[in-house]
Design a protein around this nucleic acid. Structure first.
Lengths: 318, 318
DNA sequence: TATATTTACGTAACTAGTTACGTAAATATA
DNA sequence: TATATTTACGTAACTAGTTACGTAAATATA
């Protein structure tokens, strides 16, 4: 069993599983030792019924932390063993009231006698250990309740990736010009048909955005352009810039770059003295709309758009 | 998930299992997040092969702590996925040499990249916990290696039962006379046919043992006689007493009472000035012979026995 | 109040492990 | 050296859980 020492913490799931196999295997033998043929997997449901008298599947599942089909199976086995019975629920036709039979209660009394010596056995082992497994398990459960392992892994991946992200102003090189066209063309084509206005602005970012007092930011990941965001100067009493052509390459989706890029654009707009920023999008692009909301944009009534696809208008006061 | 708080330590196996389910479920998602379709259950075997280059089923099972069929299954799946190949073992026709294919090594490189961020995720959680789950798991493994949960439970049960055991001298009451007959008669009948000598001594313990300078001990459990042991005075230059009629009721077998009763008899013999004790038994009674050895008896060449069934003779110097 | 949505739970199919058992090769022993 | 025992590993059957999905009852909503 040298694997765990060699692999380190990444194998904590496997190590936990392995110990549980070992414990549950012996648990069965210990029950038999005390003349109880209660299976360890029955214990949680059985014990709750013994204490509370009656229960329904949903509550038993919630209390034991198991899925409801797991409880359904256990209850079925307990019924078959004559230890438990189902009665109609008085007010809810979907549920049954589950309770111990006389035979179940008798086994319950014997089970109560088994508990103290088994507890003593566990305590003996805990006495030989400097680290408290029971407390550690409880703490991990709470930590995972707060934020799951997956959610934490995603956030750590985002943070690590963000370290390799640089958001830089458009630098008038062929690389940035090409990136501006390619990234936006790929994005628009994925959801819509390229319109004439798209082609024009994508081929000439200088003429359409920068020379008219606008700005462009390029997101670079490990030196490669992976995202674009334009701020088009608006001639409007309410808004200074329109946020446009914001896109992130699919291969770096899910790393939070869209938020970082959008935030950088708003910071830039504020630096340039802007009081409010406007944008237009389409109701079908829910992830994009969610991102805009996260950035602080709210729905507004806007001008008629030159793009047929724009039916959602949003604004933000800086 | 209030069950564990309510049940206490007896449910440590279930609690460990539940956490492992939770961890392994997310582990799969995290691998996919990093573009690795390695299943968590593949990880131990895969990682060992990545590190060591080559392995055989037996060693992989020993290193991971799993059963060999579990490893056989994983290797089969890895072969099917094109990540691993089997080659004939050069010296042992029963084994195959298992190693990564080119595809497996490529995935191995990606796996090496996944390890640090996953480790960082686990460390983040550990940072929120006062008790170290990883160390606790390692300590439990070692504690169970020293003595399994079952072995410990058995010993604790023995110790608890011994508290309710009293070993007392034969008190000439009808209860002890009846117990002497019933317990020995049941024991002899289980293995042999009652001989004439049995009937005589069992009906008259006073005449056959006590009045001739011998002694009888009765083991009482919760006030009920459950075991007997006789010390018959011998007229022999080598031995002072013969240990005989030692039996324990089947319902209290496995509690270590035989050892306690035998030890008490030897202490009594020594108190009475004995230098050596002799006994006769049958080679088929292996558990009894093991007990006598544990008490310190060794095989000796003895006298021809009046009992046909006695073909093993043992002695002990006090 | 009719209709849509949610909830409770049962079943099927799957997953990741186990124990039990068989077979052939390797090793120990008479 | 022939025979018995042990070892390595493959397969079958089982265990304790899961997710996915369907149905009927309960609840919310137009």
């Amino acid at each position: 069993m040298d694997f765990f020492e060699r692999s380190g913490l990444v194998a904590i799931g496997s190590r936990t599983r392995l110990l549980s196999e070992r414990l549950l295997r012996d648990a069965r033998e210990i029950n038999l030792l005390y003349g109880s043929d209660l299976k360890p997997k029955w214990f949680p449901v059985f014990y709750l019924l013994l204490q509370d008298g009656v229960g329904v599947v949903k509550d038993l599942a919630a209390s034991t932390g198991q899925s409801h089909p797991a409880v359904v199976k256990v209850v079925g086995e307990l019924v078959k063993a004559g230890l438990v019975e189902r009665k109609p629920h008085p007010t809810d036709g979907r549920s049954s009231l589950i309770s111990l039979t006389a035979k179940g209660k008798a086994l319950g009394e014997r089970t109560r006698e088994v508990v103290p010596p088994v507890e003593a056995t566990v305590k003996e082992i805990m006495g030989e250990c400097a680290h408290d497994l029971w407390q550690a398990l409880a703490e991990w459960e709470k930590a995972l309740d707060r934020r799951s392992l997956l959610k934490r892994a995603i956030d750590i991946r985002k943070a690590k990736s963000a370290e390799k992200l640089a958001i830089v102003p458009y630098n008038y090189t062929a690389i940035h010009r090409q990136a501006w066209y390619d990234l936006n063309e790929a994005w628009v084509s994925q959801y819509f048909v390229m319109e004439e206005a798209d082609h024009k602005s994508l081929r000439d970012p200088e003429g359409y955005i920068l020379d008219k007092g606008g700005h462009i930011l390029i997101a670079e990941y490990e030196g490669q352009p992976v995202g674009t965001c334009g701020l088009i100067k608006m001639d409007d009493p309410l808004y200074d810039y329109e946020l446009a052509k914001m896109c992130i390459a699919p291969k770096v989706h899910g790393l939070g770059f869209g938020y970082l890029l959008g935030r950088a654009a708003l910071v830039l707009a504020k630096d340039k003295g802007a009081k409010a920023v406007y944008l237009e999008t389409n109701h079908q692009l829910q992830p994009a709309i969610a991102l805009y909301r996260k950035l602080g944009f709210v729905d507004v009534v806007g001008n008629p758009s030159p793009y047929a696809r724009c039916d959602v208008k949003m604004g933000i006061n800086l």
